[in-house]
Design a protein around this nucleic acid. Structure first.
Length: 318
DNA sequence: AATCTATCCAACCGCTTTTAA
DNA sequence: GTTAAAAGCGGTTGGATAGAT
């Protein structure tokens, strides 16, 4: 027998919220906070289940919600975080101030997925689709690029350890940079998440002083601001020349001995735009032959210097 | 003007994880 | 250590709306 929801059991109201209900919930939380959600509807005089109240508050009534259309920077960030985290909408949304997991998920499903497919990129694996439009033409000129592409997305790689603490934990020797070779030092500090080049309101974060973690920082999935603040710290620190972006937990080696690597990882986030996104897929593929295939390297490492052909020309072809 | 179709998004459902007794 | 309740999460659905025919 199918289980019925709490709302069914208690014959509570369902469906869209009326302005009156919104007001009741807002007033109640403004006065008393939400406390235990299961008690909220009773105390607020609502014929809803606590779960429904919680959802309404989180997704719609919360005063810190941004709403409105997503900026290009937000869009880029969602794509990148999705390539790292998969469908961890709450973790992705945590890096987008004022956005909810539901909002991000809807945006992904209704917009980004479609655009990725149009560009011949599998939105699930972030790899080029098996036979994207024009692929035959590409092969005629460049050979079968698809053969060079790691078959599995990082998160799907069976060699990867299972996620710990609800976040992506890269192995200690995770090849942050394709080919294992240290890239040239970044020519400039990353502006990723920087207020001047993004749509974010990072003022509050900019006011924080830079404190470089002495040890790898484990980002807690429950801390909604951890990654954002880490990125902000890194942005400060990069500007100060100290390098090192403890972005996700990159592992002791990555953080300790390869600040340049980590920087380049942040650099991969930097300037990510649609055209580059597409370019990056092929760029990474071309530079990740062999060993990297096992590691399931992300396609966004556009700093890789091992690329010899003109990927921009390639993207024009495809 | 009427109907159909596609898209968007709020809300629900059910499962997993966390917390408290 | 066990159990139940609460909270959190991701997938899915359904209604409203816009655009096309």
């Amino acid at each position: 027998m199918a289980k019925q929801s709490c709302c069914h059991k208690k014959k509570l109201r369902r469906g869209l919220w009326s302005p009156e209900e919104d007001e009741k919930l807002m007033n109640h939380i403004a006065k008393y906070g939400h406390g235990c959600w299961s008690s909220v509807p009773k105390l607020a005089g609502l014929e809803r289940c606590g779960k429904s109240c919680r959802l309404r508050w989180i997704n719609y009534l919360r005063p810190d919600l941004k709403r409105g259309t997503f900026s290009q920077e937000e869009e880029d960030l969602i794509i990148h975080l999705h390539s790292l985290l998969g469908n961890k909408w709450s973790q992705i949304a945590a890096q987008l101030p004022g956005r909810t997991d539901n909002e991000v998920k809807n945006f992904w499903n209704s917009y980004i997925k479609k655009r990725l497919r149009e560009r011949g990129i599998d939105p699930t694996t972030h790899q080029p689709l098996a036979e994207p439009a024009g692929a035959a033409a590409c092969r005629a000129v460049f050979g079968d690029v698809a053969d060079l592409i790691p078959p599995a997305a990082p998160l799907a790689d069976p060699t990867m350890p299972p996620p710990l603490d609800g976040i992506v934990k890269l192995p200690l020797d995770w090849p942050v940079v394709a080919g294992g070779a240290a890239p040239p030092p970044p020519s400039r500090s990353s502006c990723y998440l920087q207020g001047s080049c993004g749509g974010f309101d990072m003022d509050a974060l900019h006011q924080q002083h830079c404190v470089v973690p002495a040890a790898p920082v484990v980002a807690s999935a429950s801390s909604s601001s951890t990654l954002t603040s880490m990125a902000a710290e890194a942005e400060h620190c990069n500007a100060a020349g100290s390098g090192g972006l403890p972005w996700l937990e990159l592992g002791a080696n990555a953080v300790a001995d390869a600040s340049g690597h980590v920087d380049s990882y942040a650099g991969a986030l930097d300037e990510l735009r649609w055209s580059e996104y597409f370019d990056g897929a092929f760029q990474a593929a071309a530079s990740q032959q062999g060993a990297l295939q096992a590691a399931g390297q992300c396609v966004y490492n556009k700093d890789d210097v091992a690329v010899h052909f003109d990927v921009h020309g390639l993207s024009n072809w495809c």
